[in-house]
C-alpha cells in the first residue's frame, strides 16, 4: 500500500471508530437501566449549530491540507528529462520507449485511439502509484518521477470492454 493509502487507512479508521462509538452510545442511551432524563430540547437545538460549525472547520482543515497537492497543473512547471509516448487501444498498451531511467522527471504523453482507457502505473512491488484517464482524440499528460528500478506494470483502470482486465503490459525502469 502507498503512503497515501496508509494515510487514508489511519484517518478513515480513526474518525469512523470515534463516530461509530458515539452513535452506538446514543442508541444505548434509550435502553432501560440507562439513567433516564429528558434532555433540554433548546440546548440540543442550539448545539446543532455548534456541530455544524465543527464540521465546517474539519472540512476546511482537510481542504487546506490537501488542495495544494493536486496532481494538476504540473506540466507548466515540469522540465522532463525524458518523454514517453503511451498509446492505449482495445486491448493493449504501446509504450515508447519501453525502458526509461529511474529518478528522472518523466513526461508521459498518453493517447487513446478508440475508447477511454485508464493508465495505472504499478511499481515493482505491486503498489498503484500513479493513474490518469485518457479519452480518445485528446492528449493526456502525466508528469511523474519513477524512483524504483525494476519492472513496472501498466494496467487499464477505465472499463474499456470485453478484455479490459487483460489490458496490461510492463515497462522497465533502469537505475
Amino acid at each position: 500500500m502507498t503512503s497515501t493509502g496508509w494515510a487514508i487507512v489511519g484517518i478513515y479508521t480513526a474518525v469512523t471508530l470515534i463516530g461509530a462509538v458515539i452513535v452506538l452510545y446514543v442508541f444505548r442511551s434509550t435502553r432501560v437501566g440507562f439513567k433516564v432524563r429528558v434532555a433540554s430540547r433548546e440546548k440540543l437545538e442550539k448545539r446543532e449549530g455548534y456541530w455544524g460549525v465543527a464540521v465546517v472547520c474539519f472540512m476546511v482543515a482537510l481542504l487546506a491540507g490537501t488542495i495544494f497537492s493536486v496532481p494538476y497543473f504540473t506540466s507548466d512547471a515540469a522540465e522532463p528529462g525524458q518523454v514517453v509516448d503511451v498509446t492505449g487501444r482495445q486491448y493493449a498498451w504501446t509504450i515508447d520507449p519501453p525502458t526509461i531511467k529511474a529518478g528522472v522527471e518523466t513526461e508521459f504523453d498518453i493517447h487513446a485511439t478508440d475508447v477511454s482507457h485508464g493508465f495505472g502505473l504499478y511499481d515493482p512491488s505491486g503498489k498503484l502509484v500513479k493513474q490518469v484517464n485518457v479519452l480518445p482524440g485528446i492528449t493526456q499528460l502525466l508528469i511523474a518521477t519513477l524512483d524504483e528500478p525494476g519492472t513496472w506494470t501498466v494496467r487499464c483502470l477505465e472499463y474499456c470492454g470485453l478484455d479490459h482486465h487483460l489490458m496490461e503490459t510492463t515497462m522497465e525502469v533502469e537505475p
Binding site: 487514508i8 482537510l62 500513479k130 493513474q131
Partner: peptide, 11 residues
C-alpha cells in the same frame, strides 16, 4: 479529496 482519489480512483 483529489490527492486521495488518485490512489483509489477506479479501484
Amino acid at each position: 479529496t483529489i490527492v486521495f482519489n488518485e490512489v483509489i480512483h477506479n479501484t
